[in-house]
């Protein structure tokens, strides 16, 4: 799978499909981050655009205002996102399940309103990033071939997935899964519940912020209605849930499918008011909730499990 994603931009030179791939990789990172908190730790956040926006805005602001390298901006964005995550998470993690989800929406709204009323951050228009010489240091490349953008997005996803995988290996992984399954029992077994939720949130916020920073650099425009919106939070959840909440590969599958649906419908049915992609997403999510909560990955596993059984039956 990893190899395939690496080879892809060398083979595929079509601008449309290159763009789809870059966007899918970025949203897979964000969704993998959401999945750590929502799918694996069981804290369904509808406010993840907060962290995506934090990354995009921090990077953009430092670049435009102080001319700082986007790489520095990315690192700074991570730190701000982690700090923000802890400040938000500390009170909000007192709430459980639905209550938690709703509080994250409210948080997102408050922060959105604050930002779109802040002139230094470009208010409702956002921040336009300056075009610079194409180089790795500037994190800007020629848009004729998106190969470098693709490779960096892939590296970003790789690093994110590795960080999450490492987090899940030892004690932290066991603890967050225990928290999802039964918070009270986990606590009785000595799990400091809120602290581990905060660990998961901190890592999740940092990765989401990286994705946001990178998206900002890729699109060269930071629009609050995109990077800080409820719709983006929704999109992140969609990707995570569609692929398969709780699984490591799920977000990548979900991101790819959604990105293809989105771009395809946009091309086939151009014009304002087109929302066929939303209709399809909605249907898919409802289907997954009702039929297979483990998402497309779960459906795939089910099919795979069924196949060898049939083969054996034939042999007999």
């Amino acid at each position: 799978m990893g190899l395939l994603l690496f080879v892809y931009p060398f083979v595929v030179k079509d601008a449309f499909w290159q763009n789809v791939a870059v966007l899918a990789l970025v949203s897979a990172s964000a969704a993998a981050a959401w999945n750590l908190l929502g799918g694996i730790t069981g804290q369904v956040s509808f406010g993840h655009s907060i962290f995506y926006g934090t990354g995009a805005y921090t990077t953009g602001y430092l670049l435009v205002r102080y001319g700082l390298s986007p790489w520095v901006g990315m690192a700074a964005g991570c730190l701000v996102a982690v700090a923000l995550g802890i400040v938000i998470g500390f009170p909000v993690f007192r709430l459980r399940s639905h209550y938690f989800s709703i509080a994250t929406i409210a948080m997102q709204q408050v922060i959105f309103i604050i930002v779109v009323n802040n002139k230094a951050l470009g208010a409702a228009t956002g921040i336009e990033l300056p075009l610079r010489e194409a180089s790795l240091a500037n994190l800007q490349f020629s848009t004729r071939d998106l190969l470098p953008y693709h490779l960096i997005a892939l590296a970003l996803l790789g690093v994110s997935s590795l960080a999450i995988w490492l987090f899940m290996q030892g004690k932290a992984g066991a603890y967050v899964k225990a928290i999802r399954d039964d918070e009270d029992v986990a606590r009785a077994m000595g799990v400091p519940v809120r602290r581990y939720k905060l660990y998961a949130l901190a890592l999740s916020a940092a990765i989401t912020s990286l994705a946001g920073s990178y998206y900002g650099m890729y699109s060269l425009f930071i629009d609050p209605n995109v990077v800080l919106s409820l719709n983006l939070s929704i999109a992140i959840v969609l990707v995570g849930v569609l692929g398969g909440a709780g699984s490591l590969w799920g977000p990548l599958v979900g991101a790819w499918v959604l990105q293809v649906i989105q771009e395809e419908t946009r091309v086939r049915l151009s014009g304002a008011g087109n929302a066929l992609d939303l209709v399809i997403y909605g249907l898919l999510v409802m289907l997954i909730a009702v039929v297979e909560p483990a998402g497309l990955i779960g459906i795939g596993r089910r099919l795979a499990r069924r196949l060898p059984v049939r083969r054996r039956a034939v042999q007999r």
Partner: peptide
């Protein structure tokens, strides 16, 4: 079903209804 399904099912409905209305 699992809590996650309960949270996301109406969430899917929300996205679906908004999409249909726009279409």
């Amino acid at each position: 079903g699992p809590v996650l399904s309960q949270i996301i099912v109406t969430f899917g409905l929300l996205v679906f209804m908004r999409g249909i209305a726009q279409l």
